[in-house]
Design a binder for these strands. Structure first.
Length: 578
RNA sequence: GCGCCCGUAGCUCAGCUGGAUAGAGCAUCUGCCUUCUAAGCAGAAUGUCGCAGGUUCGAGUCCUGCCGGGCGCGCCA
């Protein structure tokens, strides 16, 4: 659907065409910087455009003179009640009530699809998020990226993209060998051996106990004193599968389900990194060279080694980066670039959600993707959204989590204590690139004050009103919407911004904007509701006036629809009662 | 030392890709339940948008330089 703002931007263009045709305005001016937006201050009107200010200079005209000419055209547009010049040359438009009531009917007609946009044009966006190492359950450090990625995926879908939700399983590096060794200890333990403290460097968490038991059941004691080379691969495979199952069930607690889990090990087995290396060498983007010593602190044991290096310095990186280790295995980066190339084959654009601790590797991967997808024509759009660290606190004290140390706050624990909706909404009420504190105790204690309930409460009130009205024999109806007054129109105007908001948020890849919009909408609704506390004639249900009641119920019903549409994007439930 | 992110009310944060008089929540104070849900509303109070320059009709927003905080800077992942 077209937003009301886009529709009037179209009318504005027509008006500008008319001025050109009349010779008032020279042709060929760049209209790019022109905006049609709701003014920040609603008292200025419904729509504001900067057209006169933007065009005055290149046209060699006085902004006010141009604005006056434009206003003369704009007042002819249907739905425009008034057009005024203000400030340095803004043109403020007011729309008549009918224009807004039409928008209200559109919400009803489109229902769950109100706000859905064709902006994406059906192009496919691959959103990779979570991608936590399969070495243990999800903890709170993973939570923010998971929620942001999931909400972004839903948002992009709503904005007209096909979306692939993807999880990259790092099942090929050293960390999964450590996992296999840790599982081997638990395996021996399950067979009755007193293993004591879990050795330094292995994962000590209890979550590996059932893995050890399963291994004992499957293999008996055949690997108890066998050399590592005999059991490493089967133990690794089974432990990774078990961890992945645990991660999936943790994600399900948050309502997160990926479409695709891509295995790094399979990627390597399929020879993808080799193919990528060949291609990059052919294009002189990989060469054999010596790695510089690391910046900052140079370790004592540093010695230059010859390695295949990717020319990331050509793309603004500090140094060229190795794609293989000296033992011939792939570095994380070497496999990751092949992985991104694989993703790009089935998507028109890529988005990665990463933790900020990986910020240092953004340049090299962006460089690699640009090089590999841009060989013919324009490179595939690829963005890395960095989600800043969540600093975990317990009772105001910083709490360092470590999977190695076995002390971490699991996602499952937090979801169990405060609920999925609180966790999701909390993670979405700030922009992802800002750091945030997450005080476990405070969140549990203050979960009742969470803004999510404010939004849900608005929905619950609407539903409760509709239920009561139905019991009293009233039904929503659009037959007499002209009875709605200024206060109702204000609500409609706010709600009508939802489609525009969806497009803006999708374009900026900022799902948190939806959460803030919902909060604003809920605030406007609660304020409207409370008018009825003082003045019974302002309530939704006015027993003496069936037509007015039906119209207000219709409005309430559509506001409820908007709240549901917004919450659906965030993956938060719209409750019927509280 | 270098790179990325952040700095807005006492605290936690928005600020719609440069618009008009910078906004919410929490905390504090004052009112509002015989009522469609008070998990709500109305009002009061709170600011050198880190600092200094620059760009232009116009800067919290863009550029440069400082200051402060976070993250990162090995063939780890």
């Amino acid at each position: 659907m077209q937003t009301i703002y886009a529709a009037y931007a179209g009318h504005l263009n027509t008006a500008l065409d008319a001025l050109e045709a009349a010779g008032t305005l020279p042709g060929g001016l760049n209209r790019g910087p022109i905006t049609v937006e709701p003014p920040r201050d609603p008292s200025h009107g419904d729509l504001a455009t900067n057209a006169a200010m933007v065009l005055a200079k290149p046209a060699g005209m006085n902004p006010r003179a141009l604005a006056e000419a434009l206003v003369a055209e704009l007042v002819k547009v249907p739905g425009v009640a008034s057009a005024e010049i203000a400030g340095p040359g803004f043109i403020n438009l007011r729309l008549d009530a009918a224009a807004w009531l039409t928008e209200l009917r559109a919400i009803a007609a489109l229902a769950g699809d109100y706000g859905r946009s064709a902006m994406g044009g059906g192009s496919t966006v691959n959103v990779e998020y979570v991608s936590a190492n399969p070495t243990g359950p999800m903890h709170m450090g993973h939570c923010r990226g998971a929620v942001v990625g999931d909400a972004l995926a839903a948002l992009l879908e709503f904005a007209g993209h096909k979306v692939i939700r993807e999880y990259y399983v790092n099942d090929a590096g050293g960390q999964v060998d450590v996992l296999a060794r840790s599982a081997h200890v638990r395996y021996r333990e399950a067979l009755g051996e007193a293993v004591g403290e879990i050795p330094e460097g292995l994962y000590p968490g209890d979550y590996l106990v059932p893995v050890g038991e399963a291994l004992a059941k499957e293999f008996g004691d055949q690997f108890v004193s066998a050399p590592e080379s005999e059991w490493l691969v089967p133990f690794r495979t089974r432990a990774v599968a078990a961890m992945l199952a645990e991660i999936k069930s943790d994600l399900a607690l948050l309502g997160i389900h990926h479409d695709l889990f891509s295995s790094e090990a399979e990627l390597q087995a399929a020879g993808k990194p080799d193919a990528a290396e060949q291609w990059l060498r052919a294009h002189d983007l990989v060469y054999d060279g010596h790695l510089e010593a690391p910046k900052g602190k140079t370790p004592d044991d540093w010695e230059p080694v010859e390695l295949p290096l990717f020319r990331s310095t050509k793309f603004g990186d500090d140094q060229d980066r190795p794609i293989k280790k000296s033992d011939g295995s792939w570095t994380y980066f070497g496999a990751d670039l092949a992985y991104h190339f694989q993703k790009a084959e089935s998507a028109d654009a890529l988005v990665d959600i990463w933790g900020a601790d990986h910020a240092g590797t953004v340049k090299r991967i962006k460089a690699a993707v640009a090089a590999m997808t841009g060989a013919e024509g324009a490179p595939k759009p690829f963005e890395v959204k960095l989600v800043q660290m969540v600093q975990l606190l317990k009772g105001g004290q910083p709490f360092k989590m470590s999977k190695r140390a076995g002390n971490f706050v699991t996602l499952a624990d937090v979801v169990e204590m405060v609920g999925k909706d609180v966790v999701r909404f909390t993670m979405l009420t700030r922009k992802p690139e800002a750091q945030m504190d997450f005080d476990f105790d405070k969140v549990v204690e203050a979960s009742k004050d969470n803004p999510v309930f404010y939004v849900q409460y608005a929905h619950a009130r609407i539903r409760s009103t509709l239920r009561k009205a139905e019991a009293e024999g009233f039904a929503p109806s659009a037959d007499a919407l002209e009875l709605l007054g200024a206060e109702e129109l204000e609500l409609i105007k706010l709600g009508a911004q939802f489609p525009r908001l969806v497009e803006g948020a999708a374009q900026a890849r900022e799902p948190h904007r939806v959460a803030f919009f919902l909060h604003d909408l809920a605030a406007a609704f609660h304020a409207y509701w409370n008018l009825g506390n003082d003045k019974p004639e302002k309530r939704f249900i006015v027993a003496q006036d069936g037509k007015l009641t039906a119209s207000r119920l219709y409005l309430a019903s559509q506001i409820g629809q908007l709240v549901r549409n917004g919450l659906a994007l965030l993956g938060v439930e719209a409750v019927e009662e509280m």
